[in-house]
């Protein structure tokens, strides 16, 4: 019988070297992670530092001013019209994308025959998600502002942003619909449900959290977009928020990224701080949206 005993399992040089490689690799992975996190913290820290002393509640509730001294000591100048403009814009965009995105995803996943045409369309929706936002701006300008004759109004802005994020929302919704187990569909068919009932009662409710998460994340991207808004001619500075009436759809509008861009282009040094204060507001809205998406995802994750 061969000798057994702990002596036979001692460490050797080869094993030690392999472990060293492993540790180096982990170290590199950690540094990669650190780089992203550090860059983000630096960015957020810098913006908050720059805005310190310029951001208070009156900043949120007052229209902008051309004079930097009006932004301090609660004298009443701020981002209010652009903040409300952005919220209007994003709510409208959300309504359009949810209907169009969910409709397209349901059709492609549940109804479309698996043909070459369908696959071609699906592949191109994924490609559209990578098209630069300025190109969507040009499209929005040609299609909504000029051809449809809307002008540079809130509706044109919302429709342009809808085009921009629709591919992302469709792909996310398709994935959510595909993730609904077939056993659930069979269960409903088995008790005599029609295809429409299976889709309405089983597929949509199960896919909804995934659809909402994907949509909110896409909207969070849209709310920070500047290039397409510049292309379609959104106002850089608005002194009054959009009215709470259907007529507002056909009136000029402002948005936070446009206002921040405008502040940052001003010659007076103080406006850099005001732009930073606007950025903090924009980032806060963005983080709130992402937090909502994460909350929805966790809540429905079983």
């Amino acid at each position: 019988m061969a000798t057994t005993g702990i002596d036979g399992f001692g460490s050797d040089a080869t094993l030690d070297r392999k472990r060293l490689y492993g540790r180096v690799f982990v170290g590199l992975c950690f540094l990669s992670t650190l780089f992203g996190v550090a860059a983000l913290l630096l960015l957020v820290g810098d913006v908050i530092y720059e805005s310190w002393g310029w951001l208070d509640l009156t900043f949120l509730t007052h229209p902008p001013s051309w004079f930097p001294e009006n932004y301090v000591d609660g004298r009443g100048a701020g981002i209010y019209p652009a903040l409300i403009g952005s919220l209007f814009l994003i709510v409208l965009t959300a309504v359009f994308t949810i209907f169009l995105g969910v409709g397209a995803a349901i059709y492609l996943e549940e109804y479309a025959p698996d043909t070459r045409v369908t696959r071609f369309i699906e592949a191109n929706i994924a490609n559209l998600a990578g098209v630069p936002s300025i190109v969507y701006g040009l499209l929005g300008l040609a299609l909504f502002v000029r051809a449809a004759g809307l002008g540079s109004v809130l509706l044109a802005g919302a429709l342009t942003l809808t085009l921009l994020i629709l591919p992302i929302v469709i792909v996310a919704a398709q994935e959510a619909v595909r993730a609904v187990p077939d056993s659930q569909r069979r269960a409903a068919y088995g008790v005599g449900a029609t295809k429409w009932e299976v889709t309405r009662d089983v597929v949509l409710p199960s896919a909804m959290p995934g659809i909402m998460t994907g949509t909110i994340l896409a909207l969070a991207r849209a709310i920070g977009e500047t290039a397409p808004l510049i292309m379609i001619g959104a106002a850089t500075t608005m002194f009054a928020p959009p009215r709470l009436s259907p007529g507002a759809l056909f009136e000029p509008f402002g948005a936070m990224p446009m206002q921040i861009f405008e502040w940052a282009s001003q010659p007076q040094a103080e406006f850099q701080h005001i732009a930073a204060a606007g950025s903090v507001v924009l980032l806060t809205v963005l983080l709130l949206m992402n937090a909502t998406a994460i909350y929805i995802r966790n809540r429905y994750d079983r």
Binding site: A187, G192, S206
Partner: peptide, 19 residues
């Protein structure tokens, strides 16, 4: 077939209650 499945019900291999 939908009317047929109302007369001929089915139970599947894996338990698949709705959520």
């Amino acid at each position: 077939p939908v009317a047929l499945r109302r007369a001929v019900g089915m139970v599947f291999q894996e338990p698949n209650p709705f959520p």
